[in-house]
Nucleic acid binder design. Structure first.
Length: 153
DNA sequence: GCCAACGTTGGC
DNA sequence: GCCAACGTTGGC
């Protein structure tokens, strides 16, 4: 099993929204590297840190799990969606893929980016590196453990 | 709201 | 194929 971290702006879709819905397609990703992780590497049952970006404070808000593997993101074909992609329509072929995730746990407190940055064992994560905007990234098993420990303290 | 850093687009 | 211009991300 692999571990991941996925970013979402809570104003758009938060851990509370996922808790309410139970599960949700992770639509709207329009970055090739992030798409490739979802399309090619995420497997049923993989665990995900649900990260709130553009939030106060930014940080990890809880845990989700892959409940359905890669399938086309329907919003690319929806004219009225802000994620509409005319190229996908023109070629009659999906460009963008998503996974579906289900709610697992909401942390009692946000594990803030500031706390994550202070932990030396996490220094290699793209998340804490300046200028990285990747919204779907792999998390190493050791990093996953480290973060869970931080959460408890 | 600002803006640095980055990814994408499109003219050449 | 280069690279300037543009749009987006996301912390602050």
């Amino acid at each position: 099993m692999k571990y991941w971290l996925m970013k979402s702006e809570p104003d758009v879709f938060s851990i509370d929204d996922l808790k309410k819905k139970g599960k949700s397609g992770w639509d709207g990703v329009r970055n090739y590297q992030a798409r490739n992780y979802m399309r090619d590497e995420m497997r049923l049952g993989d665990k995900i840190f649900f990260y709130h970006s553009n939030a106060t404070p930014p940080g990890i808000a809880g845990i989700a799990e892959v409940s359905k593997e890669s399938h086309p993101d329907p919003t690319q074909f929806e004219l009225k969606s802000e994620y509409f992609d005319p190229k996908a329509v023109k070629n009659k072929q999906a460009i963008w893929y998503m996974v579906e995730v289900k709610f697992v746990e909401k942390f009692s407190e946000i594990l803030s980016l500031e706390q994550l940055k202070q932990e030396k064992a996490l220094a290699a994560m793209p998340l804490v590196q300046k200028g990285t905007r990747l919204s779907v990234m792999p998390v190493k098993p050791e990093e996953w453990k480290t973060i869970l420990k931080l959460k408890k303290s």
